[in-house]
Design a protein around this nucleic acid. Structure first.
Lengths: 341, 341
DNA sequence: ATGAAAGCGCTAACAC
DNA sequence: GTGTTAGCGCTTTCAT
């Protein structure tokens, strides 16, 4: 039988309340009493029953996910996973909510975060561009005692407790090495496409990609980025244009958020097979593009894992527990048609 | 505030005991009382607090992981993760234990499973070769009311509740496509290396690899498998021999369990760079081989994820809950030097 | 067939 | 400083 607080109280010759004070490091206990209790704890090999503790505590945590409501497939997937956690969290005595902000108005995120200060939230997961205003808003939230994790894109200098996402520099390098190796010995320029939504993560991917290509595949010069500004139609127009202008293009790297337009443009071409295409984020669209050979590889981060991880991490921080680093590490997933989940 | 059993009792005009009887489908309640309680439950949107229930029930689940004690790095990693879960599980009112069996005596696993029948275990995660004896032992365990999940390698026809692992046919195909594409246009035979420990998963990988190579890369004939029989030294001797015999070899596919010997042999060669090497399982050894270019890619399954998933799934089955399919799906991870976690 | 009451392991007022 | 006591939400005797 596992030892309980009663056992400790008995062996230490104190009351339940004192045991509780020692266990929770609450003040108002004499030094030698503390050590007496501590001895009993160690001797009996006591481990607290978290379920019972939470039950008695009547504590229910409240967390919020704050993120821009972009209409990309990636964001939709993210929102779906958040909603899933919201639903499941009800039975775990934690209340998770999703707060969407205007994606085209950075001020919207800032004012939302300001509103959240002192709103009694235990934790917030935030995703947003790296502006000084947002950074400061996170600082304030954090200073008010709310634990904060950043999602997908980190906010340096914001004092956030944890970042849930991938190393985008490494993700860009991964795209680069796949591009180079899949092209075999072929030479020619590589086209880079991007949305523009999240400055930091996209910029880092681009940087990682460029550096690796320059160092390892100098015969594959990387062209300046074509910006899609979250507009699938724009990319669908720009891409064929760019391809026509530079007929030697051998590969396309899509940094993110413009897959729909890209896929449309690629499929309407006569021959796709001669172009190596590497894209980001696994969505219904990119999955189908992998399936029919329009894409050669997709680099992605598991949104379900990220959302669950963010919730677990927030909870661990609130409860003052250690996190399981290995479990919370978000992998840079590579998907080919063959290993699609 | 979430509704509790008290709320149901009040709205249905019955006592706590009756509510409990209805909730747990216990006999001794009149039909119309049942429906009255049911109405209250639905109306209030009641969801039972499993933690409180388990506390009152004094119930603690006991699970066991049963697996052969091979000395490979993969198995060591698996054991380490199981021990980690064992340690953490103590505070979650579930007792997880690890039972090692003799890897070279299939009978050892069988007799262990037989011993476990009626031992009061709630769930067992088992990893082992696909023999009729083991299949039947699992059947008996399952028939005795113990929930069973298979780990890494499935046992078809055993009636297990769930399989925690990857589709090894797809894993082999993934290895094949990486091999073919990384080799660019180069032609020549490909060497296949394997241990022999787990018939089923290794055989499936081999099959997937062969089929894909034959269909998509006919200029890369696949040589018969070189069996290492879990002996690194044997592979270290056999491999250079095979390479000398067929000087045109352009790639090596290591199906599993022989990485140590393979790495040793490769590193002692004059030039490694002209050979594309794809291996399985991320271990300290294979990680370092990726780092220095000895390996080009490693295909793996996250052992930490698998062990945690097995525990979650067993628990869900015991509690009669649904599992989150997406969360429990084990991915076929591809790691290059660039996206190493 | 139904209900009253005690208690699971822990916490938190409040009393001394 | 320390102890008493009444719960948290649910289960489980034991009466009725």
């Amino acid at each position: 039988m596992r030892p309980t607080v009663h056992d400790i109280a008995r062996t230490a010759g104190v009351s339940l309340a004192t045991v509780d004070r020692v266990l929770n490091a609450r003040p108002g206990v004499r030094e030698d009493t503390i050590s007496r209790v501590q001895v009993a704890i160690d001797q009996l090999g006591y481990v607290r029953d978290v379920a019972a503790a939470n039950l008695a505590r009547q504590r229910s945590y409240s967390f919020a996910f704050v993120l821009p409501a972009f209409h990309t497939a990636f964001q939709q997937g993210l929102r779906a996973e958040i909603d899933d956690v919201c639903a499941r969290s009800r039975i775990e005595r934690i209340a998770v909510t999703r707060i969407d902000v205007d994606p085209h108005d950075p001020q919207s995120l800032v004012s939302t975060l300001h509103r959240l200060v002192g709103a009694g939230l235990d934790g917030v997961a935030v995703m947003g561009p790296e502006t000084p205003q947002i950074r400061d808003a996170v600082r304030r939230l954090r200073a008010a005692g709310t634990r904060v994790v950043t999602l997908v894109s980190d906010l340096e200098g914001s004092g956030r407790d944890h970042f849930v996402g991938i190393n985008n520099l490494a993700a860009g390098r991964t795209a680069g090495v796949l591009m180079g190796r899949f092209l075999g010995g072929r030479a020619g320029p590589v086209l880079v496409l991007a949305g523009s939504m999240l400055a930091r993560d996209h910029a880092e991917r681009r940087l990682g990609f460029d550096r690796l290509m320059l160092a390892d595949f100098p015969h594959l010069p990387v062209l300046p980025t074509l910006e899609g500004h979250d507009d699938p139609d724009l990319i669908a127009r720009l891409m064929p244009e760019a391809l026509a202008q530079r007929p030697g293009i051998v590969g396309i790297y899509s940094i993110g958020a413009v897959n729909r337009g890209l896929i449309g443009a690629l499929r309407s071409r006569a021959s796709t097979r001669d172009l190596v295409v590497i894209a980001h984020e696994l969505t219904p669209q990119s999955r189908s593009a992998l399936g029919d050979g329009t894409f050669d590889a997709v680099i992605t981060q598991d949104v379900g894992h990220m959302v669950r991880s963010a919730t677990r991490v927030l909870r661990a921080f609130v409860e003052g527990r250690e996190i399981n680093v290995a479990q919370e590490r978000i992998r840079i997933d590579i998907f080919l048609k063959e290993n699609l989940p």
